[in-house]
């Protein structure tokens, strides 16, 4: 069994997002037709299907929407991260993302808490967007 961690492979559509993380910035798509923010990156708007969408740099400020602490690895590849603090965060723009929390103790985790981005360079040219208490 391949025990290396599964890493994201950017697509032509999503590359600006991952390139942004490598540069320490969070970029989101926004639809020019309906004004809706879009995540994950898409070729058309997830609100109105327009293809008139544009990348914007955002602050990355977020709140914790929900979380769990996996006491058993969700897959053998993540055994070294147990307890895994898995999270759904909501960015200021209203979109939600899957992430993990860092620089936090279990007891301090509270739904609704303020978070800021933590750019985690996990491999050469691959940065994951984790979140830490603000």
């Amino acid at each position: 069994m391949d025990l290396s961690k599964p890493l994201p492979t950017p697509t032509p559509t999503s590359a600006p997002f991952w390139d942004g993380l490598n540069d320490g910035v969070v970029r989101l798509q926004r639809c020019n037709a309906c004004g809706g923010w879009i995540f994950y990156p898409r070729s058309r708007c997830s609100h109105c299907l327009s293809d008139d969408i544009e990348w914007h740099e955002v602050s990355g400020a977020a709140t914790l929407h929900t979380f769990t602490i996996a006491r058993q690895p969700t897959a053998p590849q993540f055994a070294d991260e147990v307890p895994q603090i898995l999270a759904v965060v909501e960015l200021e723009e209203g979109v939600r993302m899957t992430s993990t929390l860092v620089r936090v103790t279990e007891k301090a985790i509270e739904i609704g808490m303020q978070l800021e981005p933590y750019f985690d360079r996990v491999a050469d040219g691959v940065t994951l967007l984790r979140f830490a208490p603000r």
Binding site: S14, Y40, T74, E81, L86, T100
Partner: peptide
């Protein structure tokens, strides 16, 4: 694969 699995959400 791109936005959930790399964080261990699987």
């Amino acid at each position: 694969a791109e936005f959930d699995v790399p964080y261990g959400n699987l």
